[in-house]
Design a protein around this nucleic acid. Structure first.
Lengths: 210, 210
DNA sequence: TAGATTGTTAATCGATTAACAATC
DNA sequence: TAGATTGTTAATCGATTAACAATC
């Protein structure tokens, strides 16, 4: 059984396993061993078994895992048996791209409300969703019971926007703004740091690394 | 002095410090202690000093760090004293957003070549850069001596595109495609996994976590 | 000098991995 | 049953943190 203290990286990897399993399912593959999964996702088989062990026992010794079953179980663990309503704040270049990103829907995340400062953009419809004024953020996000927010606004307003989302009842925030955000305890923040990632690559390419 | 085996996360954090220092410099702040930096970036002061210690001694006991100097040193470490030419492959929604992302230039990354499959888009100019056919990828990227590539193409072609980039001499790849990529040794790969990040938030919001 | 803060060591904490007994 | 592979333990590895001597 073994629970308590699940590493963050384990969740990220579980999510990767989930995506891989849905591929296997589409291909009609019935069973898979941790060893074969390991090859498929580029992670050691012991790691995969360890990760899964935080949540229960899903395999059968001697023959591995049933794809359909493991897939279902993992979706359950991640909470993807429900549809998730997501608020997107900031409909600039990046926001627009995010609002059209097809993978979100595939993983059961629905951008049900979009907010933007620019009055020129407010009122536009994208995929049946109206782009609304930021003024309405708190009211609408609360009303929709949105638990997840995405921030792609200019740096100086990132903190106040995060604060608004939290006041509206959001429990997790994905930020694309390369800025430190203060969060109250219990609110999960993930920052997608594009420049830091490029800088890692530059550091390595430079040769200075090794 | 202490070198050898620098953790990956250290580089990411160094990049965060760098961004913070450039803010401080703009504000005209002359000196800062690790304790004050810690508050600014939300990382423990001991961690900051440890991270810096991998690369040398930049402070002065009793008074902290000179902002201008530390900023310069870190830029040097990260390799940001040079301009970096970057190839962007895939000019869909996300690719378009990336080609307009202002932070890249600010951190000295220049998208000097852009490639796309769709013949309708080929020939467009964005910021003085022509969108070229993917067919020209290998030739042009090699010619430009591009060391960094960004991939935002449909999943099925991600691997062949990565292969092309590597053949063209690229040393590091930033991929936005949620797909496992095989890399030869020595090539650095960073995957920006948007859905995995959202799924982490869902996992937490679900309450199942604690 | 006295006070302050770095740079570094050593202790702690946590995550990965190998190995294997349990068991399908 | 014999063979295979899981689930789990214990060993290893690596990263974070506290603490403090060095020193500005």
């Amino acid at each position: 059984m073994g629970n308590l203290k699940i590493p963050e990286v384990t969740i990220i990897r579980i999510s990767i396993y989930s995506r891989y399993l849905s591929q296997l399912k589409e291909k009609g593959i019935r069973d898979i061993t941790s060893e074969d999964m390991a090859r498929g996702v580029g992670i050691k088989s012991a790691q995969i078994r360890k990760d899964l062990s935080y949540f229960g026992r899903f395999g059968s010794r001697g023959s591995g895992y049933n794809v359909r079953n493991l897939d279902q179980q993992i979706l359950q663990i991640l909470g993807l048996n429900t549809k998730w309503r997501v608020s997107l704040v900031g409909w600039g270049n990046l926001g627009l791209a995010l609002s059209r990103y097809r993978w979100f829907k595939e993983r059961r995340f629905y951008l049900t409300s979009i907010f933007e400062f620019d009055p020129e953009k407010v009122g536009t419809f994208i995929d049946g969703v109206e782009v609304m004024s930021i003024e309405r953020l708190e009211e609408v996000a609360r009303q929709n019971r949105t638990l997840i927010g995405i921030i792609s606004v200019p740096a100086p307003v990132a903190q106040p926007i995060a604060d608004s989302l939290i006041r509206a009842g959001v429990r997790g925030i994905l930020s694309f703004v390369p800025v430190v955000l203060n969060m109250p305890p219990g609110i999960e923040l993930r920052i997608v740091d594009l420049t830091a990632n490029l800088e890692m690559l530059a550091f390595h390419a430079q040769g200075l690394s090794l």
